[in-house]
C-alpha cells in the first residue's frame, strides 16, 4: 500500500483512466500515423496541446516553490506573441530566418523585462505576489493589444510557423521545446543547489535570510524565469495560429498552470516542488480537454467534467481522505470523544 502514498501515483492513474475511456469510446484514438516522415495522431496532438501549458507550469512551479504565484503568465504569452508578430509583419520578407530570429529574441527579451518587473514588485517593494502579478495580468493584455493596435495581426512566415507546427526528426518542435525547457529547469534546480535554496525560501523567508540566502535575488530570478517560459509558450501559441491575438492568447492559462503544479505535488504555500509532477499534471489537464472532445462530451459539459476529475484527483491525493476511506475498523476505535460531564 505504500506506493499509494506517492502523490504522483494518482495523476498517473487518472491519466490512464482517461486514456482508457478514450480508447473505449472513440475509434482510432491511439492511431499514430507516419505521414511525410512526421508523427500524427491524437496522442501526438495531446502532447502538442500540452506543450505551452507544460512550459508555463514549469515557470509557475519555481515561482510557487518560493511561496509566490504568477497570475500574469497568460498576459505575458499574449505580449510575446504580439511582439513577434509585429516584427515579422513589418519584415520585407516574412520568410527570412534572420528576421524571424530577431522577432523571437525580441519577444523573449520583452518577456524577461516583464518578469523582472514582477520580481521587482514582489522582492524589492514587497507587494503580495498575487496582487503584484495581477497588475501585469490586467495591463499586459492592454499592452498586447496596444502592440497590435487592437487588431489581430496575421503573418505568413514559414520559419515562424515551425515553432508551433514544425517537426524535427519526426517529432513536433513545440513538444521538443517544452521537453528541453523542462530538462534544463530540472538540471538547473537539482544538479545545482538552486532547488534547495528555493525550497528554503519558500519554507521560511526569515530563516532563509538568517542562513545567508539571498532570498531577494532568487525571488526576482524565479519571476524572470516564469515570464521567459510564458514568453516561449506565447510564441508557440501564436506560431500555431500564425497570428497574434491579444485577447485570447493564454486566456485563463494561469489557472490551469497552477492546477498542474498542485496536482504534481507542489504545495501552494511554497517549499518542496516537483518538476516531473508538474509536467505530468500539465499533460493530464491537456488530455482532459482532448479526451472530452474525443469521447463526444458536449462543450457545455466539459467544465463539469473537469470539476469532477479535479475533485476526484485531489481527494485521491489527500492522505486524510484515504485514511477515512480505507480506515481499518480495528485501528481507530471510537473516533468520537467521550467527554465526561
Amino acid at each position: 500500500m505504500t506506493f499509494l502514498k506517492n502523490r504522483l501515483v494518482w495523476p498517473v492513474a487518472m491519466l490512464a483512466l482517461l486514456l482508457l475511456c478514450a480508447l473505449i469510446f472513440s475509434d482510432g484514438f491511439f492511431d499514430i500515423r507516419i505521414q511525410d516522415g512526421h508523427l500524427f495522431g491524437t496522442p501526438i496532438n495531446i502532447l502538442r496541446a500540452s506543450a505551452p501549458l507544460v512550459l508555463v507550469a514549469v515557470g509557475m512551479t519555481l515561482v510557487i516553490s518560493t511561496g509566490g504565484i504568477d497570475l500574469s503568465v497568460g498576459s505575458v504569452m499574449a505580449v510575446s506573441g504580439a511582439m513577434a508578430c509585429l516584427i515579422i509583419g513589418d519584415l520585407a520578407n516574412q520568410n527570412s530566418v534572420g528576421g524571424v530570429t530577431l522577432a523571437v529574441v525580441a519577444a523573449i527579451a520583452l518577456s524577461l523585462v516583464l518578469g523582472l518587473w514582477n520580481g521587482f514588485l514582489v522582492a524589492v517593494l514587497g507587494i503580495q505576489p498575487i496582487i503584484a502579478t495581477l497588475i501585469l495580468m490586467v495591463a499586459g493584455r492592454g499592452l498586447a493589444q496596444l502592440i497590435t493596435s487592437g487588431q489581430i495581426i496575421n503573418v505568413q512566415s514559414s520559419p515562424y510557423k515551425v515553432i508551433g507546427t514544425g517537426f524535427v526528426l519526426g517529432l513536433p518542435v513545440s513538444v521538443l521545446i517544452a521537453v528541453a525547457v523542462l530538462v534544463i529547469a530540472a538540471l538547473l534546480t537539482r544538479r545545482t543547489a538552486l532547488g534547495l535554496l528555493l525550497e528554503s525560501v519558500g519554507g521560511s523567508p526569515v530563516a532563509s535570510r538568517l542562513a545567508g540566502i539571498q532570498a531577494r535575488r532568487l525571488t526576482i530570478m524565479v519571476y524572470v524565469v516564469s515570464a521567459a517560459c510564458a514568453g516561449i509558450a506565447g510564441l508557440i501559441y501564436s506560431s500555431n495560429v500564425s497570428s497574434a491575438d491579444g485577447n485570447n492568447a493564454g486566456n485563463l492559462i494561469e489557472l490551469d498552470a497552477i492546477l498542474a503544479v498542485v496536482i504534481g505535488g507542489t504545495a501552494l504555500t511554497g517549499g518542496r516542488f516537483s518538476l516531473a509532477g508538474t509536467a505530468l499534471g500539465a499533460i493530464l489537464i491537456a488530455t482532459l480537454d482532448t479526451t472530452a472532445q474525443a469521447v463526444g462530451i458536449p462543450p457545455e459539459t466539459t467544465l463539469v467534467f473537469k470539476a469532477v476529475v479535479v475533485v476526484v484527483l485531489c481527494l485521491a491525493q489527500s492522505p486524510a481522505f484515504r485514511a477515512r476511506l480505507f480506515r481499518r475498523p480495528a485501528a481507530r476505535p471510537a473516533a468520537r470523544a467521550e467527554v465526561p460531564a
Binding site: V304, F305, A307, V308, V310, C314, L315, R324
Partner: peptide, 20 residues
C-alpha cells in the same frame, strides 16, 4: 477534512458552478 488546498478546492468549485 481532506486538507485539499483552498485554491484548488475552490477552483474545482468554480469549474463546477460555471459548468452547471
Amino acid at each position: 477534512f481532506f486538507k485539499v488546498e483552498p485554491f484548488i478546492a475552490t477552483l474545482a468549485g468554480m469549474f463546477l458552478a460555471r459548468g452547471v
